[in-house]
Amino acid sequence: MEPVFDKEHLLKLARYKMPYGKYKGYFLSELPMPYLLWFQRKGFPKGVLGQNLREVLEIKENGLEGLLSQLREDFQP
């Protein structure tokens, strides 16, 4: 069975920036793995940010982070 991708969701995820902290203003896909893994250990924030951090971690764990940067480049608003 092939995975189903929601293009709009992936575009939003590709453009989502960290709203606070040391990496404020960075795209989530630019966050270093140790930072994402720290959130995983300590607990992701609630809401959209937490869900997006989980998804970016999974994408990076599978070596697909280039997908998000390519989406940002291909679909400039």
Rank of each mutant, 00 (worst) to 15 (best):
E2R: 14
P3M: 09
P3Y: 04
V4Y: 07
V4H: 10
F5H: 04
F5N: 06
D6K: 03
K7T: 07
K7D: 14
K7M: 08
K7G: 11
E8F: 01
E8S: 14
E8W: 06
H9C: 05
H9G: 00
L10M: 11
K12D: 12
K12P: 03
K12N: 06
L13Q: 04
A14P: 00
A14D: 05
A14I: 01
R15Q: 14
R15C: 12
R15P: 00
R15G: 10
R15S: 15
Y16V: 06
Y16H: 09
Y16S: 11
Y16D: 14
K17I: 15
K17R: 03
M18V: 10
M18E: 15
G21E: 05
G21A: 05
G21F: 01
K22M: 07
K22R: 05
Y23H: 06
Y23L: 10
K24A: 09
K24W: 09
G25A: 10
G25W: 06
Y26K: 08
F27P: 10
L28R: 00
L28I: 11
S29I: 00
S29T: 12
S29K: 14
L31I: 15
P32W: 15
P32G: 12
P32R: 03
P32V: 08
M33F: 04
P34D: 02
P34Y: 15
Y35A: 08
L36C: 02
L36P: 00
L37Q: 01
L37E: 06
W38N: 14
F39I: 04
F39V: 01
F39R: 13
F39A: 03
Q40E: 12
Q40D: 07
R41F: 05
R41V: 08
K42V: 12
G43E: 03
P45H: 07
P45A: 04
P45L: 12
P45R: 04
P45C: 09
P45I: 09
P45T: 06
K46M: 05
K46Y: 14
K46R: 02
G47C: 04
G47F: 02
V48M: 07
L49E: 13
L49W: 13
G50E: 10
G50L: 02
G50S: 04
Q51W: 15
Q51S: 12
N52R: 15
N52Y: 15
N52M: 14
N52S: 14
L53I: 13
L53S: 10
L53K: 11
R54F: 11
R54I: 03
R54M: 11
E55C: 13
E55A: 11
V56I: 07
V56T: 12
V56S: 04
E58W: 04
K60N: 01
K60Y: 02
E61S: 11
E61Y: 11
E61P: 00
E61C: 00
N62Y: 11
N62L: 09
G63E: 11
L64G: 03
L64H: 08
E65G: 01
E65V: 08
E65I: 07
G66K: 01
G66P: 08
G66Q: 01
L68H: 02
S69G: 07
S69C: 02
S69R: 05
Q70T: 09
L71K: 00
R72T: 06
E73Y: 09
E73G: 00
D74P: 06
F75A: 10
F75I: 03
Q76M: 09
P77Y: 12
P77T: 08
P77I: 13
P77F: 15
P77M: 13
P77S: 02
